[in-house]
Design a binder for these strands. Structure first.
Lengths: 184, 184
DNA sequence: TATATTAATGACCAGGGAGTCAGCAAGCGG
DNA sequence: CCGCTTGCTGACTCCCTGGTCATTAATATA
């Protein structure tokens, strides 16, 4: 994963992967048919455990929708943009279009589930009278877009302008809540 | 640009670029010292004219801050995610870390200027009593993050879930305005 | 200890691509 | 018409890397 993250798929040498793993190139070809196979396996093995941990982390709590957004969701949003997971985002963006089945897998196992989870929370907020109906109901992506943005920014522009990702996320959540909360 | 956009830097053959340009590989090496040189020139030549056009487009009008966001800014935000410019974003994300001087140039000529422009508009809104002070003043990135998000989404996940980018942008702007506008 | 089976190595090969360069073509000046 | 300059070509070289496979090491079995 480190190797692919640093150099991208095409520029990464299989031998380099082998070296970092402390094995010979030949061994990799005993376990993976091709370089592409290896790549896909690397991605999947990177994602799966983290995904499980995340689902566990967020869990099914009895929080209100706002508490959920200010709590577990904000925690997640603060953590991810500086975690190793951000390189995954860059890889998926860069290499995705060339590996459609990998994207399909990622879609099914990560993105669509995440989206569904967010929809559920928002729906709960609306039904419970906490939130107005608003654009985020139709476009839950609006809740996550700063997360992706921060992941990208920290990898591309950090040297030129270090982004306070925690502040960004807090600002984002408060901005959104301020817009959708039913005021009493 | 097409070639690099399709395959990424490493997987693009210089000969392929030459073929699409209708010249020989040798000629490219008369004008560009190396493949990397060629790549940087391609990016710069792609960005520059569009940037000029954009600046012209937005211009200095006498719109209120809200009118500006609902007008020229929203137009821009709707147009970009499905324009050829989106492949540029993918390329910068994918290849940026390997070409620091290209990122530096892009930062100076595009990103920092864009950010400054947004700050100016928000500042005007606040000073004119249209807007509250809010998180977007500290993090103007929050205004653009859905644009980047949409550019990425349309290139990676369109096959699985076609995103209504226009709707997303309209929703975003109304959400933000709803949050920061001073109500009368 | 001897033998069979499984795990792992790394030298090797074939294909491909970045970069070079001798030479061809086309305009230009006399 | 002829030399001269400039623009351009594509065959060639050399290196690199994905993938193979004969060989060796380690482990299990008898």
């Amino acid at each position: 994963m480190e190797a692919f993250a640093e150099n991208g798929y095409a520029a990464t040498r299989v031998e380099e992967v082998a070296k970092r793993a402390g094995v010979s190139k030949g061994l990799l070809y005993l376990y993976f048919k091709t370089k592409e196979d290896l790549f896909k396996a690397v991605i999947r093995n990177f994602v799966s455990p983290r995904l499980d941990a995340l689902i566990q982390d967020i869990g099914n709590s009895d929080l209100t929708a706002e508490e959920f957004l200010r709590g577990p969701f904000l925690d997640f949003a603060k953590k991810v943009p500086r975690s190793p997971a951000r390189v995954l985002a860059r890889l998926m963006i860069a290499e995705g279009p060339k590996h459609p089945d990998l994207v399909a897998w990622y879609w099914e196992n990560v993105v669509s589930k995440g989206m569904a989870a967010i929809r559920t929370v928002l729906e709960k907020g609306v039904r419970g009278g906490e939130f107005h109906r608003s654009a985020v109901d139709d476009f839950p992506q609006l809740l996550v877009s700063p997360v992706l943005f921060a992941m990208v920014w920290t990898q591309v522009f950090d040297a030129h302008d270090k982004l306070d990702t925690d502040g960004l996320m807090e600002g984002h959540i408060s901005l959104v809540l301020n817009s959708i909360k039913v005021d009493r």
